[in-house]
Design a protein around this nucleic acid. Structure first.
Length: 355
DNA sequence: ATGTGC
């Protein structure tokens, strides 16, 4: 009997390569269940998976960016204070976030050497506003209102996670109870802590840089690259979030809505996991040639939702274009069809910043 | 993904 499950509905396209990669992980020693979430796509290891194992752990499934995730913050800034032209100009002045002074508000020294940076690739900082409330009772628990300017930070443990993976990169995995497994789990825990702290530090740095005295209040923080022990099992989540820690934020691309959802009590089926986003549709290397002719240097920066992106990396603008991602609605509908979520609210991007 | 590999 197969130990593999793909959570998807008819219209949600999932590439064959990613499915093969998922089956590869399902066949690893000690793997008891392998779940592909609707945003499953191919990578060095597949992204959008929850892999449950017994007696052995596989750090390479988690990958280099241990603790990477989405932090949704209430900026304490009123939505009406947002002025597109002024904010774009101001953010354009940042060459790199590393150039701005970072204050480490924690007692310990950060193992992330460049704390306060978001990194590159698919990482971003995005100002958002409330678009629609679907479940008023659940929405009320979030402590946000239609007047609030929100900030979504996608980042992780930067070079620190990378250094941990280098130490524990054996694709054969490590036996639970071994010195190596214990050591990995300890460092992994530190990476999770500091990846979350990094999201908070970045959020506050941007709020401060834009001239506001308020502090970022965490609405939701959900990591999507991590290993969780559950009873005698280990759940490897790579591009997947836990469905057991309250509301979850599932963003689309910079040109689509972000959903706040509430997991249901049926999530055992998906290894207590949900999608982390829309998922890539196009490989990075294909993006530029496919859409270059459609845009000029300005129009590539605006979206259907009238949001804008500040980004000094010309290639990244194409690699991270909305077209490169799947339709978030297909992902959400797949999760709904399997009875795994209820939609709480939708947010709309207004301004994205990328490294 | 990456205080980036050749």
């Amino acid at each position: 009997m197969s130990n593999t499950l793909l959570i998807t509905r008819g219209k949600n396209w999932v590439e064959h390569t990613a499915m093969m990669q998922l089956k590869g992980l399902a066949n690893l020693k000690g793997v008891v269940k392998a779940v592909g979430l609707p945003d499953l796509h191919a990578g060095k290891t597949p992204i959008g998976v929850a892999i449950v194992s017994e007696g052995i752990i596989y750090p390479h499934i988690i990958g280099n960016d241990i603790g990477c995730g989405m932090g949704l913050f209430n900026t304490g800034i009123e939505r009406k204070r947002f002025k597109m032209d002024r904010w774009v100009t101001r953010l354009n002045h940042i060459r790199e976030l590393a150039d701005l002074e970072t204050v480490n508000p924690y007692d310990e020294q950060s193992p992330i050497y460049d704390l306060g940076t978001i990194g590159s690739g698919n990482h971003f900082a995005e100002f958002q506003v409330l678009q629609e409330v679907f479940d008023p009772a659940e929405f009320e628990k979030l402590n946000i209102s239609k007047d609030d300017l929100l900030l979504l930070i996608h980042s992780g443990s930067r070079g620190y996670g990378q250094s941990i993976l280098r130490e524990f990169s054996d694709p054969q995995g490590y036996l639970v109870g071994s010195m190596e497994a214990k050591c990995y789990l300890k460092k992994h825990r530190t990476a999770l802590l500091w990846a979350e702290r990094n999201r908070i530090v970045v959020a506050n740095k941007l709020i401060d840089y834009l001239g506001y005295a308020s502090q970022a209040a965490t609405v939701i923080d959900c990591k999507h690259n991590f290993l969780e022990q559950k009873d005698h099992l280990f759940i490897h989540r790579k591009g997947a979030v836990s469905a057991e820690v309250g509301a979850v934020v599932i963003p689309g691309s910079r040109g689509s809505l972000t959903y706040i959802v509430r997991p249901t009590d049926k999530v055992e089926e998906s290894a207590y996991s949900l999608s982390h986003g829309a998922g890539r549709k196009w490989a990075r290397s294909l993006c530029k040639s496919r859409i270059r002719d459609k845009y000029d240097r300005d129009t590539i920066r605006e979206t259907k939702l009238k949001s804008w992106i500040v980004c000094h990396d010309a290639d990244l603008l194409f690699e991270e274009a909305p077209e490169a991602y799947k339709n978030i609605d297909m992902v959400i509908e797949s999760l709904l069809e399997f009875g795994l979520i209820k939609i709480v609210a939708a947010l709309k991007p207004v301004l994205t910043y990328k490294g």
